[in-house]
Simulated assay, not measured.
Amino acid sequence: MDQVLTARRSVLIGLPLAALAGAASAQTPKRMTAYKTPWCGCCGGWIAHMRQAGWTVEVIEREDLAPIRAQHGVPDRLASCHTAVAGAYAIEGHVPAADVERLLRERPAARALSAPGMPAGSPGMEAAGREPYTTVLILNDGSTRVFGRHNGA
């Protein structure tokens, strides 16, 4: 009888714990908004890369992206051709999906992640060749640090 009660107690205690573990491991939806100019083709390549990585991307076309970058603290020297917003972070330019996912997993005290310019071989820029490049984390105080290295950078 004691063994039966112990087994029942284990099951009754274990079920809620298993449910909590499952809820904790469930991922939040991968959603972002991407701002791009109407005439940029490589932005579409980056958006396709993000969608292929499982992201839902809402696209908003704007003639001028400078106000979006300014709103999210991305300085002109780190600008690219499109700006996305995922969670509390701006994603500037051709940042690989793996870097975006790492950013959201680690949640550093930062405002944005940037692949400055339009590096050849970055997602959406594959047709331009291949060059080493870095992604740069823009910290809350405006300073930067290298976040990721790509193509042998």
Rank of each mutant, 00 (worst) to 15 (best):
A79K: 03
T28C: 00
E61S: 14
L65R: 05
I91P: 04
P29C: 09
A120M: 02
V85H: 07
G148M: 04
T33K: 06
Y133W: 12
G44T: 13
A112D: 01
T37W: 00
A86Y: 04
L103I: 08
G54V: 09
S114N: 03
M118T: 07
P108D: 07
I68W: 02
P67H: 10
I47H: 00
Q3G: 10
T135W: 01
M32F: 05
Y133I: 07
S10L: 14
L78T: 00
A98P: 11
T33A: 01
A120Q: 07
A98Q: 14
L20E: 03
A53D: 12
R8G: 12
N151H: 10
D99E: 14
A34D: 10
C42D: 06
H94E: 08
P132K: 05
P67C: 11
G124T: 06
W46D: 10
T56H: 13
G142N: 08
R9V: 11
L17Q: 04
T134Y: 00
E92D: 06
D64V: 13
S25W: 14
N151L: 09
T134V: 13
L12Y: 13
I138N: 00
P108N: 09
L104P: 01
D99A: 15
T28D: 13
A84I: 00
D64K: 11
G142L: 09
I13P: 04
A7G: 05
T135Q: 02
L103S: 07
